[in-house]
Nucleic acid binder design. Sequence first.
DNA 1: CTCCTGAATGCACTAGATGCAAAAATGCAC
DNA 2: GTGCATTTTTGCATCTAGTGCATTCAGGAG
Lengths: 225, 225
Amino acid sequence: MRDRQAIQTAGGAGLRERKKARTREAIAATALRLFLESGFEKVSITQIAEEAEISRRTLFTYFPTKEDLVLQLFADHEDEAARAVRARRSGQPPLDALREALLDSLQRRDSNTGLNDSAESLAFYQLVSGTESLAARLTHYTSRGIDALAAALREAAFDPLTARLAAAQVITVMRELADQNHQALAGGTSAADRYPEAARAANHAFDLLRDGLGSLRDSSGQAYS
Amino acid sequence: MRDRQAIQTAGGAGLRERKKARTREAIAATALRLFLESGFEKVSITQIAEEAEISRRTLFTYFPTKEDLVLQLFADHEDEAARAVRARRSGQPPLDALREALLDSLQRRDSNTGLNDSAESLAFYQLVSGTESLAARLTHYTSRGIDALAAALREAAFDPLTARLAAAQVITVMRELADQNHQALAGGTSAADRYPEAARAANHAFDLLRDGLGSLRDSSGQAYS
DNA sequence: CTCCTGAATGCACTAGATGCAAAAATGCAC
DNA sequence: GTGCATTTTTGCATCTAGTGCATTCAGGAG
């Protein structure tokens, strides 16, 4: 009966559903552990299934591809930027809200800023950016994030084209900043040591987004110091 | 003797080399034809090898992955933006050179602007953007393009961080514009009909890059008309 | 307890990709 | 031309991701 099913799913209290969710998490956790231990390519789906004590075939009902075992963590965060825009104080420009949100994330050492130097965060970022197939599939989630942000910007009275361009730019820039932070940490710098530079870079990036690259022309491109 | 080999390769005139290049092209052409006929997933490597009259195993010595059969065409274009910056007139801001180059490409209906409505161009663009694995792997080439442009911008006296951010923004925006053009053409509009709008959008995008998104604040985001 | 439904499983199969060693083609020295 | 060394091509075996299908299993409703 799909009525009962629908009710349970909606209610979220179904026993089966909870068990499913736990299984799903267990699989992902097992997979991540193995990947971090031995590298993405070195671990086979079969191996993950064995460790997680499910059949190989079942694993595929939970995760359509090997990459998704790692990346579906991003699904939860993909609309963060859009939410920041929607939650902005009235009268605040969307771009300012995004800047604020990023600076907040940096202070909180959110792992998606690349500024978390815990062993796990570092290893995870390294896993994703160092595995081609993962980095490739990540774009899929990134563009969903762009779509979401573009929608939020349209709501904020941007025309559709501008909204799309702005969204793409913002997400791209944030990802670039995160990469730079990660590279610094991967080079041995602590998050605390990197933080001031990370904040300055973020502010610089959002200054550029707000004021444009043309603002650099006169000073022969040396606006960042 | 690797000396002789090196000389021949450097000279570019080696007979073996030319033959190899021709074989390579023949394989890629065959593959592309089959993909456009039947779709990327429907055509197997084995099938391509048969049509191209080489062994399956040989195909893999020329192209490491199935995706590369399609995408290595992008390798030639990945540093176009960087070249446009390096070839700019003295005193011209890099961003202006990039805008000019894009407007030129639009006029020439370069296929990488998404504004070419020939059946082949349309089908090709559709093939790439409509096949997930291709779109995913395309990022690989895109980021090489960003790297190249960032390098060119550093040469133009941008500081490294700004160069990277600007490069990422420019490439992202150009890709977005191309997507929009392609969507218009896919919807049935002719390239000629789309052209004015494409040029306007390109100019608007580069205005934004130059003047920043902050320039929209006062006019409540309705700068594009 | 019985029945029904959805989840888990086993098995066979396709297809991309890699390693390896044999075979063929090629360019060069003589 | 002949023979030699090197590169290229090829066939074969193998690994792994992913899919389809039919069967089994378990939990909840009556």
